[in-house]
Design a protein around this nucleic acid. Structure first.
Lengths: 231, 231
DNA sequence: ACGAGTCGGTAACCATGGTTACCAAAAAGC
DNA sequence: GCTTTTTGGTAACCATGGTTACCGACTCGT
């Protein structure tokens, strides 16, 4: 199990668990290692799921049939990334996506049951494992939640205001440097770059903000909030 | 603890745990019960969080400052609803929202640690508790994920097509009854009702679907898929 | 069966923002 | 230093879809 422990100990599921403990734990978890050739399917969307996977060698892609037939790559998985952790514990334990090997690869599967199941040998770190699992899943939920909040904002103005006020709150200064360039920011806000520039230009004209490239200065917090008030 | 067990055993956190076991478990979990008067704050957005709450009497409201000052009610909590379960296990254990008592009410707080922490008395159902916690959290993440997928679709056409094909796939029949009325459907797809009707009208004109009120008939699956292909 | 209320379709109007294209400024390469 | 590339601002054009309003068709209560 030593060599396996080495390959997965960077996985967030095993955070704060020492290499030695991890090796011991892998006995309890009874992982199954499977090898796949390039283009082989590791999981098929819609099939029942009982284990989560961790890539230990090579890489794979999470793909989604875009409701239409065409297969679209959602995420690239490489060591030591995990997949299936969402659906594994849900009420509908069904693979939500198809995972296909991008190269020859090797995947370790762990039964969902053995994560929560009390390990017979009372591994001291089993608690930590469960805690990690909960962290991973709640963090993802929080990220998605934030994403939904932004997507529900209707106008570009609102998106920009919320984003800038969020930065303002985080830094505590009315002058700060944006962590994203315009393309990334537009992408994050789910608008096009020209639309973003246009709106920021208007906001500058209205005296709400001032900026040059990535450096932003908040001039009129009240005015910005008013843009949200009127919905 | 008997009376407490009675009040929370409908909570999804305790699903598949018998009333008797639950009462025993509550000893291990060391819950703290606090009473609040109407309008009192149970939690304040931004403050550190270490426990999750379950409403056992009265009701409370999850509120969010809309970035602007105004407080907006997000969810109404009544017995035996739970709150804080997302943030409790996340990397940033901070209350993401303010919870305020809507009436005089009573809340049971359970330390996040005692959920994952192995109970010293080896409660047989502790595993089930952990499993339930994971279910709750993963289910929420999956719901959010579906929401994001719909929100990322740009045109009304795409949203309608994805929604209808999803129903089609689920029922397996090309003729079925929509579970939502037009208002709810428009709401779910995040478009206005007239826009939805307009688009469905066009799709009928084009021979993709036929419908009358809630009963829908899928006529041209290929044609519908084509609407997604061109992005 | 009749009137009130609800639900869904439709149309005209118009604001918002995506598209495309072009240019200037900054940054990177040589 | 200069050229090349990347990044960001701007403008014109136009499609999409939100808004408002209205009307007909169902539903429900009496």
């Amino acid at each position: 199990m030593e060599h396996l422990a080495e390959k997965v100990d960077q996985c967030s599921l095993f955070r704060d668990i020492s290499r030695a403990e991890l090796a011991a734990m892998l006995h309890c978890l009874q992982p199954v290692v499977r090898k796949y050739h390039k283009d082989e399917l590791l999981t098929v969307e819609g099939e029942p799921l009982s284990a989560l996977g961790i890539v230990v060698a090579g890489n794979a892609a999470v793909t989604k049939e875009s409701v239409a037939g065409s297969r679209l790559i959602m995420t690239l998985l490489e060591r030591p990334m995990m997949f299936g952790e969402m659906a594994a514990f849900s009420d509908t334990p069904i693979w939500p996506a198809t995972v296909v090997a991008q190269s020859d690869c090797e995947v370790l599967f762990i039964q969902a049951q053995s994560i929560v199941g009390q390990c017979q040998k009372h591994c001291a770190y089993h608690q930590q494992l469960i805690y990690n699992m909960l962290s991973i899943v709640t963090n993802r939920a929080l990220v998605l939640n934030r994403k939904v909040e932004f997507l529900l904002l209707k106008s570009v103005r609102e998106k920009v205001v919320v984003y800038l006020l969020e930065q303002y709150r985080q830094t505590g200064k009315e002058m700060f440097v944006l962590p994203l360039d315009r393309n990334e920011m537009a992408d994050f806000l789910n608008v096009t770059r020209p639309a973003l520039s246009r709106e920021m230009g208007r906001m500058r004209d209205e005296g709400l903000i001032d900026y040059h490239r990535a450096s932003i200065k908040i001039l009129d917090v009240e005015g910005m909030r008013r843009a949200l008030e009127g919905e």
